[in-house]
Write a protein that binds this DNA or RNA. Structure first.
Lengths: 228, 228
DNA sequence: CGAGCGATTGAAAAGACTCAACCACCGTGG
DNA sequence: CCACGGTGGTTGAGTCTTTTCAATCGCTCG
């Protein structure tokens, strides 16, 4: 939690090993390190917003970032919550289009930046890296298909359970720490509904609520409710 | 409509020019033609199903194909409807995973098949082709983000309008021709709800209903209802 | 001509949303 | 150190959309 300003080198970066850059050899990593800059972000700070043009990619070394679109009324829909080791914003790098989503930190974070040209260059040169990227793109496509189905077919209660299961693995050893509003925007419902359902889950002994933080007690049951 | 058994060569294939293969030069196309087989599919015939392992990709020369997952109750959720020129099932080619979706024809179709190895080979050799694929993957990722948001935030009525607008461009000069059930599975609702809302739209002069087929009358108004 | 599937209708019930009010915590400034 | 203001969290009530279930209709195919 005590993150704060930190300067990371790619050579020592723990997050790198579980990232898209895991396939880089020593030489690649040194090169990568020369091309990246390292930045500290406060909580609720924007990385980029929908409609702007991408200038590079972001490597989340430490922290959490929400990726979201906005529906008609301006209501956020959180599509994904990124955590350590994830690379953010690389999709828009290929299309030439502006970002279709926005990214904002959920907590203080250390995030490295790699300029577009440098990134595309690495892609040209490194076939394994390319394959990793394509694999990742298609994996996310699959995840989004499931999400679409969930949103379309599952009632809010089930979606909340599903989201809690997902968040539980995103927050690993920590407790889930999201505002009710963000949680609502992740599940795709109203915050009042979230609050009521959380209470139900608490009464059923599935979770414990510590003011803002949520502790998962009965993961198995939650998975069962979430349906798959 | 009078499709039926047809043998297409890639050289003469009209669909090719608007497909992912549009960047192929003459030599590439000849090569492509040698590696593809051409098949006729009846209506409601499966191309592949969720969970099976991909053996190659499908080029939709003529016809329509629904791509769908199944929710918990087994209810289909149509993620996408492919039409002439679209390449189907190439995502699972990269991940090494089994298909995450199923594909079934909505009408009689002519579909070519290219084996996995041949496809991956083309990818290795042809950088422009590769870029096209990556661009396409990220484009679809963006579309799915919008779809997720729609499903999560828009009421059924708006989603139906949105779907009709989309279907109108998929069916181009023809009228929209889907069973009520397929339409419901596309919109993400019950078929009864679809029927009631279609009647509303008809009464409001937005569409005309010819038994099973739907004719769009007031596209502008539908777009307005669909919200974006 | 009959069977059967897809389309349609009606009525009742459930799930969510909205709106409005209230509470609780937290940091600020006096 | 305490009052103040504000944001985020919580609660209640009423409403509306959507679902569900059951029944009927109507077209198409054998």
């Amino acid at each position: 939690m005590e993150t704060n300003h930190k300067h990371v080198t790619c050579e020592n970066c723990i997050s790198r090993k579980k990232s898209l850059f895991s396939c880089f050899d020593n030489e690649n990593v040194t090169d990568l390190n020369h091309h990246k800059s390292c930045n500290y972000y406060k909580k609720n700070q924007g990385l980029f917003i929908d409609g702007s043009f991408p200038r590079g990619i972001y490597c989340l070394n430490d922290g959490k970032v929400k990726i979201f679109t906005r529906g008609d009324g301006g209501k956020e829909q959180i599509i994904h919550i990124a955590t350590s080791g994830e690379v953010i914003g690389y999709r828009s790098m290929f299309s030439g289009d502006p970002y279709g989503v926005s990214a904002t930190t959920l907590e203080e974070s250390n995030i490295c930046f790699i300029a577009k040209d440098d990134f595309l260059n690495m892609l040209d040169v490194n076939a394994t890296f390319r394959n990793n990227i394509m694999k990742e793109l298609s994996k996310e496509l699959g995840e989004r298909a499931i999400l679409i189905t969930n949103m379309a077919q599952k009632p809010v209660r089930d979606r909340l359970a599903f989201s809690l299961v997902m968040l539980n693995s995103i927050y690993k050893d920590e407790m889930i720490n999201l505002s009710r509003e963000d949680l609502a925007n992740f599940v795709g419902t109203a915050t009042e509904t979230i609050i009521r359902l959380l209470k139900e889950f608490k009464d059923d002994g599935l979770i414990e609520i510590h003011t803002r933080k949520i502790e998962v007690i009965d993961l198995k049951k939650l998975i069962q409710i979430s349906g798959k």
